[in-house]
């Protein structure tokens, strides 16, 4: 049993690093989505990727790094507050846009097949 725990402790930094990198990659993908997507409302969803899964994975990775410490508890608090406030902020922005009459793109939208330069479609 203790050997198993020891083994766990040895692989823990690697797992933590992998989770951290995955999270950071997802944050980056979300950011590139914010550049790539066609209109304001669809960009909200890409930003949401950063706000949710990206945040969770980055913080989880850091928590795995530091182990069972007070720092982990603080990181968990950061995550909790972010998950509480960021959808609220997103809702506020979306609401402001909607109320002021910004029309969403509806129907079907395709990115131009020949060219996918990120962000040239606005």
């Amino acid at each position: 049993m203790s050997e198993f725990l020891q083994a766990l402790d040895i692989i823990r930094p690697y797992v933590a690093g992998a989770v951290l990198i995955l999270g950071a990659v997802i944050v980056f993908l979300g950011a590139s989505g914010v550049l790539r997507l066609p209109d304001f409302y669809s960009r909200l969803h890409a930003a949401g990727v950063t706000d949710t899964l990206g945040t969770l994975l980055v913080l989880l990775g850091l928590i795995l790094f530091s182990g069972f410490t007070l720092l982990s508890a603080k990181l968990a608090l950061v995550g909790m507050f972010l998950l509480l406030t960021s959808p609220t902020a997103t809702h506020a922005v979306a609401n402001a846009a909607h109320k002021s009459g910004l029309k969403p793109l509806l129907g079907t939208w395709r990115s131009q097949p020949p060219k996918d330069e990120p962000g040239n479609n606005t």
């Binding site: 979300g30 669809s42 990727v49 949710t52 899964l53 969403p104 793109l105 509806l106 079907t108 395709r110």
Partner: peptide
């Protein structure tokens, strides 16, 4: 998240936004 990331990454992105 996985669905949205897949959509963002797909080279010919097809969106069907709805309200």
């Amino acid at each position: 998240n996985i669905t949205v990331i897949r959509t963002i990454l797909s080279p010919d992105m097809v969106l069907t936004p709805r309200m």
